[in-house]
Design a protein around this nucleic acid. Structure first.
Length: 184
DNA sequence: CGATTTTGACCAGCGC
DNA sequence: GCGCTGGTCAAAATCG
């Protein structure tokens, strides 16, 4: 499973109706952070893992790059980035992860490792959206934001994932494939 | 020994 | 009101 730069603690697992695979529930280990995520395996294609994020991280991602010579040196000391926009602090985005069959492994986290210096999850995801890789698509979902905010609106079209149809039931999805992250 | 995972129980929302 | 389903809690087990 993908490491997105944050530490998660599993707090539950439930078998879901119409799905042969259980859904796992994770909370961010940071006590001041209410971010959650749900991880389930796609019913149609077991290679696809559906990760649903809920809430926003109130802290930076865990530093995969301990020392980033950005010159400014402004990364660690600023604990929280002021969120001037996005009135809904509660948002969720949904993305599907397609582990490379037979490979998976180490490269899963590389993408988020690279994005980790950006810190907050809401900063991280738009980064993905603004730089859509061919097999990359994403969108926000959830209660906090309007459905029209779906960055991957019409998963049938803009979502280039070849399995996009499998999750069209959800108005939003955020899928990425480690293969598409080969630019790292 | 602390952190994390596992797992059954509990609770709330929803449809009938 | 009842049952089903999904989400969360919390104690026990496991791991490093």
């Amino acid at each position: 499973m993908a490491d997105d730069g944050y530490k998660w603690r599993k707090y539950g697992q439930k078998s879901i109706k119409n799905s042969p695979y259980p859904r796992s529930y994770y909370k961010c280990t940071n006590p001041r952070c209410s971010a959650k995520k749900q991880v389930e395996r796609s019913r149609d294609e077991e290679d696809i893992i559906i990760i649903t994020y809920e809430g926003l991280h109130l802290h930076f991602a865990y530093p995969f790059f301990p020392a980033i010579p950005d010159g400014g040196g402004d990364n660690p000391p600023t604990p929280k980035r002021p969120r001037t926009t996005s009135p809904g602090t509660e948002s969720g985005e949904r993305f599907r992860e397609e582990p490379r069959p037979g490979n998976g492994g180490d490269s899963d986290g590389l993408f988020f490792m690279n994005a980790a210096p950006q810190g907050l999850l809401e900063d991280l995801v738009p980064f993905v959206v603004r730089n859509p890789a061919p097999l990359l698509s994403s969108s926000y979902a959830g209660d906090g934001v309007s459905n029209n905010n779906s960055l991957c609106s019409n998963s049938s079209s803009s979502c280039s994932s070849h399995r996009s149809s499998s999750v069209t039931s959800s108005p939003s999805c955020f899928s990425w494939s480690p293969e598409s992250l080969s630019f790292l």
